[in-house]
């Protein structure tokens, strides 16, 4: 019973954080969908513990929580991977932007003309 209360209240905290960051537009709507799903998943697992234990046993895992750890670990690895892919994409975009900006601000003696002679 204690476990259920802890998991549910932690999920509630998660929901509150999602709500507030979404309200301040710090979190994108897409990420909100993912994190709401995570919170709901946690609640579902806590409430339907017997079902989860049954799934664990039929998957050949004798101790339910260790299957949970495995699932969570896989989820976190996938999340990290997707985040590093996104960082890669952002880096590429920053380079493109910096290059385009540099091309706009290029300084050539012939572009400067009379106005630039005082420099």
């Amino acid at each position: 019973m204690m476990l259920e209360i802890v998991v549910i209240s932690m999920s509630m905290v998660l929901f509150a954080v999602i709500f507030e960051t979404l309200r301040r537009r710090r979190l994108s709507e897409g990420s909100a969908v993912l994190w709401i799903a995570v919170g709901l998943g946690a609640i579902l697992l806590a409430v339907a513990r017997p079902i989860f234990d049954w799934i664990a046993r039929s998957a050949g895992v004798s101790y339910g929580p260790s299957l949970l750890f495995a699932i969570v670990a896989v989820f976190l690895v996938l999340l990290c991977f997707s985040l590093s892919m996104q960082i890669g994409r952002l880096e590429k975009r920053v380079k493109i932007l910096a290059r385009e900006l540099a091309l706009h601000e290029k300084l050539n003696p012939e572009d400067v003309g009379e106005a630039g002679k005082g420099r």
Binding site: L22, R23, R24, R25, E29, G30, A32, V33, I36
Partner: peptide
Amino acid sequence: LRLLVVILFHPLRRRR
């Protein structure tokens, strides 16, 4: 689902 989040939260959110 994302669109639902956009619509449901719209009245509560800060202006962009």
